[in-house]
Design a protein around this nucleic acid. Sequence first.
DNA 1: TTAACCACGTTTTTT
DNA 2: ACGTGGTTAA
Length: 741
Amino acid sequence: MSDLLANLNAEQLQAVSLPPQHALILAGAGSGKTRVLTTRIAWLIQSGQADPAAILAVTFTNKAAKEMLARLAAMLPVSPRGMWIGTFHGLANRLLRAHHRDAGLPQLFQILDAADQLAAIKRLLKALNVDDEKFPPRELQHFINGQKEAGIRPHAVEAWDDYTRQRVQLYQEYEAQCQRESVVDFAELLLRSHELLERNEPLRRHYQRRFRHILVDEFQDTNRLQYRWLKLFADEGREGGAAMFCVGDDDQSIYRFRGAEVGNMRDFEREFRVANVIRLEQNYRSRSNILDAANAIIRHNTNRLGKNLWTDQGAGEPIRVFEAFSDGDEARWIVEEIQQLVREGALRSEIALLYRSNAQSRVLEHQLFSAGLPYRVYGGLRFFERQEIKHALAYLRLIANADDDTVFARVVNFPTRGIGARSLEVLQDAARTYNTSLYATVPHLSGKPGSALAVFVRLVEDLRRDTAGLPLPELVDHVLDASGLRAHYKAEKEGRERLENLDELINAAANFLAEAQAQRAPEEAAAAHALLADFLAHASLEAGEHQADPGADAVQLMTVHSAKGLEFNAVFLSGLEEGLFPHENSLLESDGLEEERRLMYVAVTRARERLYLSFAQSRMLHGQTRYNLRSRFLEEVPAGLTKWLTPPNPRSAAGGEFGSMRAGAGGGYFKPSAPVQRAPRPAFAPLPNGLRIGQAVSHAKFGQGVIVAAEGSGTDAKVQINFGPAGVKWLLLSVAKLEAA
DNA sequence: TTAACCACGTTTTTT
DNA sequence: ACGTGGTTAA
């Protein structure tokens, strides 16, 4: 046991070995957060303070849950059964399956992912003849999820205007539809399990007595409902309730847009009267130049819980800063630097290329591709989100539950079997009249037994009968053939990859079966249809990897958001421009700029050894060339930590007074560290009227000024001009009378 | 039923 | 610029 605690620093040790009391661990980036969390669990068990069954550990992503399990397996002599470790949604699913009757659900309820939910809403609007222009499905989805995450059912929504009342009506209809079809969306998993325990006191007491230790990862990302869910398990922090051990970093809260409430940290501290607030401030990841930059940036935020990271690893290399003429120029420079790093022996997979928005990956990919550098982009479609996989899963879901109208509608005519929109409309109307599912309505139709719809129903019946005794992988295999999916993609010109993915689905099923057999009695796992439901839940809750080849030695491209939690030897952060990063939309939101700054903080703290910051004077966005100022976040990096590879250019500086920014700062001009030929400097790209960035102009009212930025074209063309004492203004070229000065 | 066409939107994302 | 989704014509 002593070796468990060895090599922990004082604060980590304090956190890990805390008595069973509530604790809030403020864990800075790279401070060993996951280590503390898992060591805490291992220590509680190994020291005999807690039975494994008394542990409830909650994460946000399946990846984090898996990593925690893997680390625990390495720390503990035997794999401790009985712990509940998983995501909020995974654990909620587990609860609802175990107590489905009390929760008012059939045992085989299906889970809707976000896309399924949207499809269900569209179908609902159509069935109710609601104008989807007036009630955009996406917005309605957002409304419904928002209410659920606030814990509000339709009857409890406070609606003061007609529009809201109508949306509440639709919310109610949506719930009825889900209940009819035995489907549950993500927010519903949490809300339903919360209500289950809230209403059922014996059950609640059971779990409250069972779980003595509740540990939460990434606590700053919890939403209101998730926090309430946790509080229920912890008996609201009352005497005798479980000990809450929450780990988080308010400086890394970057998910407010999807409902995360950093305020939960303060609420937790207050409501649970947390006596142990422990700060993990020693960073084991980055060189101090990088860390100091991160600290300096985040210091500009107010309302922090307060932390200052330090390291004993030494300063390391200066942070390289590069100003490019264009996005293409920037990408070319990045590729050259990467090639130089690789020549020096760097592993490609240890180099990350980060950006604020996905649209930026295009230029970067183009240059990487031209240079023949292997790369991997995160953020595309994931395995279980692919069209062909969704179709295959839809057939499987019909076997498990034929009354699921979402999947019925999805595959009733895929592959095509002559069931057009017209027949579906008739069927839908009939289903409403009989108040039955689409599937169950087919026999009611006056159509002959040989009708296309009747044939489809027969197909589903046959599938269910023929697969009844099959092991899961063979079941899937059979469905792929009998449904006609294989034949369909075989006939398609571009169907090869899709066929491969379908085969991969069989592999996924085989893996799932193997894991199930390892965990339960083999005879239990052998029951094919029972396992099928579990497999389908797994597919909904865990969308899988983003792309194949995760092991390949390739440069890693991703948004700053998806880089959270990762680390790399070298990080390139591109597009550091006003409007892009911080994103222009964020400036309109309250606390938006501070969230962008936290994002910047996350980006910078991903780097271990080397950090490269770059921006471009012009950038292609939405088919138009935009001229941006460099990001204010760049100015927040102390000059002593950086090394400008291009001369600091006052014209591209953000902020008010022209030329007031960092004149002569940064240590002068340095050649690019790679021995590369750069294209000769083009002049600033001319704007429509022959004006240029940096050009002096005069205006009748504002006087002398200099063009600092421009955007739009034709009659929309406008330029930003710094008039010195008269301020910085945007002027429409078609309106303003400007004269070259 | 399918291909062709146009309008539309375009920050970030997990479950 | 570029992909998506919906409508229209063949």
